[in-house]
Design a protein around this nucleic acid. Sequence first.
RNA 1: GCUCCGUUAGUGUAGAUCGGUCCAGCACAGAGGGCUUUCACCCCUUUAACCCGGGUUCAAAUCCCGGACGGAGCACCA
Length: 527
Amino acid sequence: MAELATLGVDAEDLGPKKKDEKEGLPPLPGIDKVKSPVFRMAPFPSGPLHIGNARMVVLNDEYAKMTKGKLILAFDDTIGAMKKKIEEDDSGAKYVIPEAYDMIREGLTWLGVNWDQEVFKSDRLPIYYDYCKQLIQKGEAYACTCEPSAFKAFKDAKKPCPHRDQPIEDAMEGFQKMLDGAYEEGSAVIRFKSGVDLSDPALREPVIMRISDAEHPRVGTKYRVWPMLEFSWALDDHLLDMTYIIRGKDLFKEDVIEEQVWKIFGWKPVHILHYGIISTEKLGKLSKTYAREMITKGEYVGWDDPRTWTLQSLDRRGIRPEPLRYVLLSQGLKMADVDFPASIMYAENQKIIDPISNRYFFVEDPVPLSITGIPDRSYTAEPLVNPLDPSLGNRSISILVKDGAKKVLVSPSDVEKIKGAGGDVLVRLKDLFNVTVPGGDISKAAFHSKDLDAARSQKAPVIQWIDSDPKNNVVVQVLMPDGRVTSGRGEFNLQSVKAGETLQFERFGFVKVQSVTKKKVDAWFTH
RNA sequence: GCUCCGUUAGUGUAGAUCGGUCCAGCACAGAGGGCUUUCACCCCUUUAACCCGGGUUCAAAUCCCGGACGGAGCACCA
């Protein structure tokens, strides 16, 4: 007995304490030895940031905040060969679009990210050239003119290609010819001597510099030789004093190359951390190339179309940044691949918007319900603006009755339920009055009573309704996350709503208002 | 084919480092109920997982080995 009592006390004391300790991300390895932590976000400016990029951003930002470190926004805007650009194949065609720089900044700002410095990789070509020459000088890189397929054969056989053993002078000359334009795009590259017999074929003798005649949005055609991602970062991670690299595990190969380069130059290695791939498959096709195509075709409304899942699109839909950060951070730095937990993000978002979203009646794909035998000439429904905050008061919806008859609009799904019940069904038109629908026939409904208690005592379903009088309703259009547009009618009060407001359509969901005219409200579905 | 990585309920996670306190916790979703003039919110109850097989051990989700499954890389994309 005494034991039980003691245990009880202990459990109560430990419980809440334990919880507090679990907050936030785990500490960074070796952080106690790092004087001034530096992190980086390295987006490729091919479009605005989407949900898939957000993980990289949020993780780096959060750690920078936790450690009071510096966060660099490094636009990874090096470009590949021209012919790649022309291919419509979405696995290969990636290119920089000028508007992307600002769209990325906009997304970051929305996410609450504070960065201390901006770097453009496209400004740093002379640096890459310099170190490339040093590498060649050290005999660690060479100029290769193999056809890609020919090189692959050497690589697969773990054999050096004929250019690997060229004299340093030849390699230097080869690089110079690349710079001078003596080689055409695609006809020569600089390769790094990582090792021809590495067990992992992905790591053998990677290209570090190649020619591109493509025009760059920032620097035009000033440079025609561009570094590969892993090489430019091998240099910049050191040159920019990076202390931590947090990247997806799909960039694992880059680690190895970077580490080899650091070793050659005698540089201190940077901590590298990986997280698993976050799958957005279930959300639809998220490629930026695809999105751009759909925007061009006019299928998507723009870079903030809900189907793009860009940060802009989330904002426009009514998703707040906090829930996104929350789900991304809760996933931590696991190496396991995961599905993006959209439902959790929605649940978190709802906690924020529910108390501040005013309620309105909306009926999707409405059908008329004809009621007869109504005693009074007019009725007024007065539903709460938001039941979560009664101090906001009530709105008022008045209807006029002519010759005891009235038509209201109701939802087909509610009609189905009424029909399913069979026989005469008592239905409460929310906040208005009760009607009987004989045998589910919505053309023959009859007034039953006004009193709520009458409906309650019979457990009558309560449904949404809209006055069928066009002067007393508005047309409502809702763009769904999958691009579908659904429409219906909403209560007249909707005409005083403002663009940008988040609303709740009762028994339908949350929406964010896009535009309002006298007779029409355009909204996007939040969740 | 080669290489690397991963595998806790429907989804996301906790559990690490120091194997017992885990017949596995939490959140969201699901089911049922209560409250409610919303299928919202709130409250209560409930379903449901340690990939498989060996081993070490008094004791394994946690350590070791093998397998299966999944992902990534093997691009002059990032």
